[in-house]
C-alpha cells in the first residue's frame, strides 16, 4: 500500500485516494465508520483528475 500510494503520488493522482484497512466480519460498526470517514476524504480530494474514462 505504501508503494501504491507513492506510485499514485508520482503519477499525480494523490496517494491519499487509496487506503487499506483490516477488519473482521464482526466489525460492522467500525466498517461503517471507516467507510464514512473515507468517503469524506474522497469528497475533500475531489473527482479523479483523469475523469471517468481515464480522460482528464
Amino acid at each position: 500500500m505504501k508503494y501504491l500510494g507513492s506510485l499514485l503520488d508520482q503519477i499525480g493522482l494523490n496517494g491519499e485516494r487509496v487506503r487499506m484497512v483490516n477488519l473482521s466480519a464482526a466489525m460492522g460498526a467500525r466498517f461503517a465508520e471507516v467507510a464514512t470517514e473515507f468517503v469524506e476524504k474522497i469528497k475533500e480530494l475531489g473527482p479523479n483528475p483523469l475523469g471517468k474514462n481515464g480522460k482528464p
Binding site: 506510485l7 508520482q10 503519477i11 499525480g12 493522482l13 483523469l50 481515464g54 480522460k55
Partner: peptide, 15 residues
C-alpha cells in the same frame, strides 16, 4: 504493465 499504465495516466494529466 504497471509502468505503462502509470505513464499513460501521468502524461494525460500533463495534458
Amino acid at each position: 504493465g504497471i509502468l505503462a499504465s502509470a505513464l499513460r495516466m501521468t502524461t494525460k494529466l500533463d495534458g
